[in-house]
Amino acid sequence: MSSSSRGSNRLILLSIGLLTVAVAAIGLISSPAVAGTVDNETCLACHDDVGENYAMTPHGIYFQQRPALRDYGCESCHGSGGRHIEDPTPDNILNPANSDQFGSSILCTQCHNTEQFDEWEFSAHHNADINCASCHTSHAKVGHTMKKPTPELCYDCHSAVKAEMNLPSHHPVREGEMSCSDCHNPHGGSVSLTMDDSGRELCFSCHAEKEGPFVYEHAPVSEDCGYCHTPHGSVANNLLTQNEPTLCLNCHSMHFHATVVSVDGEFEVPQAPERASRSTEDGWKRVMLTKCTQCHGAVHGSDLPSQATSTGGNALTR
């Protein structure tokens, strides 16, 4: 063999060697078989129940749009699957459904980071280790990602609220005209689970006519609607915590007219005979001690003075 042919052979060997190294390097970069990483296909080979709808799930659709994640959607939430492949026990894979408030539950909020989740880490649900998977199922088709429709989903844990919602006076949740999320933000709010800065503000967002400001005020309205009302349900009408007049008597003295003994039978009004009426012996008690709001109807406040001078016009009768 001539020296020139030996040189050529070395060049060919070097070229093959370089090519092999290059191919191996490229292969290493692009291969899904990098230690600890597995693609969707590998996961779905066992988890075929998930695979059935995967392409139609919100996550499946999202990952489909991102070439870098297209084949590794499972690992985007579940972390590296390498160890799980070697030993397929649940302990060897990250499961967001088991996350708690000490760090791991922010996994979902890394992507779901819009303002509706701003308060999640301060929320009562988060603090109770209720995680996203407690209410949502991430492997379901678009439009079916809630485990149950509300309010049933909420009632599973808040069953005492369900009982209140079935009381004679209630917000129309039972009738399907409202849902829990009309008042509560399950992902956290400023006051407990509510959406706004204070309980009053939340109520006024629907009952704006009761906010005022008014010339003639009813002080508890300035404090808290909860002084007189209970939001989920009550025995008394209008979600009142107690029936009238008992509720009003907590802060007010009854009319002294309730002590007046009445006619037992028919009577005429001297100045207006057309108003002839029938009374009982306890007629004044019935008039004055049944429903205070029959006369004091503007109980949330009013701009119109009431008639009697003695109260300075502030009797909330009109």
């Binding site: 004679p168 008992t246 002590t259 306890d282 008690k285 001690l289």
Partner: peptide, 20 residues
């Protein structure tokens, strides 16, 4: 003297009882 400060019937004005 002509006024009555007993309220024996009054409690019934607040009473409610429902079966649903």
């Amino acid at each position: 003297h002509h006024q009555d400060f007993t309220f024996e019937e009054m409690h019934t004005y607040s009473d409610l009882k429902y079966h649903y």
